[in-house]
């Protein structure tokens, strides 16, 4: 049950954006052009990069150096983005990708390079068919639904109209449409009714590229108190987040670009700040 203040918070989160600039890799640039043209966009944090691929393709196609007989579709399947020599994982929401870098929010334009060749299959999930983003998203949302209910039934019993409408709302970044299905038909009305909260914690400073995902209940079964984000972090990363520490001494959690205070119950946080793939992605960054 979303109150009007909840809706206001969610609305602001959905409006969150990141300034991105995209340049063509010199390997793919037509020799007649000395410098790559730059594509600027204000991307929505709560969205996915592949949803902008069509725009990128339309802009850069005239500047590509190989035979222009390449079809739009083939170019799109070979498209990949890179930041400072690191391939960008297209399956993560944009806000998460940006937070993961720990850059200063206000100062930067995120400078990316776009490639149309040599897709790094060692680092990125291959883009096999044109619906790769949709298929991945469907998988994520089904998993989130299962975590919420211990059953995939709510999402599987959606009518064809509803399930297509849910994907359309993701593509169009339309919260009211997303709300009418995800919040009203999939999420239980009360946040403490969740069987578990779909949470993923990312540790960008870890040497092995860690993602933590364990089961989180909305309430502690013994004390019946709502579990807060501090409780979760203390359980999973006790060295960084000790119970007695009132403030974030060594590290802090960044969700949707916001440093969240420790005493917020995680189930309520989920309803407010879930990304549109159904997960609450939390980045852990170190205090400098």
């Amino acid at each position: 049950m979303l109150s009007s203040t909840d809706l206001d918070v969610i609305d602001r989160i959905w409006k969150g954006t990141i300034k991105i600039s995209v340049r063509l890799s010199p390997l793919d640039l037509n020799i007649h052009h000395h410098k790559s043209p730059v594509y600027y966009l204000t991307a929505k944090r709560n969205s996915f990069l592949p949803l902008y691929y069509d725009d990128f393709l339309k802009f850069f196609k005239p500047y590509l150096n190989f035979a222009t007989e390449q079809t739009f579709e083939r170019l799109k399947l070979n498209l990949w983005l890179e930041f400072e020599d690191i391939p960008i994982k297209w399956n993560y929401p944009i806000g998460l990708l940006y937070d993961y870098l720990g850059l200063d929010l206000n100062a930067h334009v995120w400078n990316l390079k776009i490639h149309f060749n040599n897709y790094p299959t060692d680092f990125l999930i291959p883009q096999i068919k044109l619906d790769f983003m949709e298929k991945f998203w469907v998988n994520q949302i089904k998993e989130a639904c299962y975590i919420q209910h211990s059953s995939a039934k709510p999402i599987m019993s959606l009518s064809t109209v509803d399930s297509s409408s849910l994907w359309e709302s993701v593509k169009a970044h339309d919260f009211s449409q997303f709300n009418s299905i995800f919040y009203k038909k999939i999420l239980p009305p009360v946040s403490t009714d969740l069987k578990h909260v779909p949470v993923k914690v990312y540790l960008p400073y870890s040497s092995s590229n860690f993602i933590l995902q364990e089961l989180v209940e909305p309430k502690d079964p013994e004390t019946n108190l709502k579990i807060t984000i501090k409780d979760v972090l203390n359980k999973w990363l006790p060295d960084l987040f000790s119970k007695n520490d009132p403030n974030y001494k060594y590290a802090f959690p960044l969700i949707q670009g916001i440093i969240v205070p420790g005493n917020v119950p995680i189930c309520e946080l989920y309803y407010l700040m879930t990304y549109l793939d159904g997960f609450l992605h939390i980045c852990i960054l170190m205090n400098s």
């Binding site: 049950m1 979303l2 109150s3 009007s4 009418s180 009203k184 038909k185 009305p189």
Partner: peptide, 17 residues
């Protein structure tokens, strides 16, 4: 009072559909 009304309408929608 406004909050309450908004509350009501969201609740009803769930069951009509």
């Amino acid at each position: 009072i406004d909050d309450d009304e908004e509350w009501e309408s969201i609740g009803k929608d769930i069951y009509d559909n």
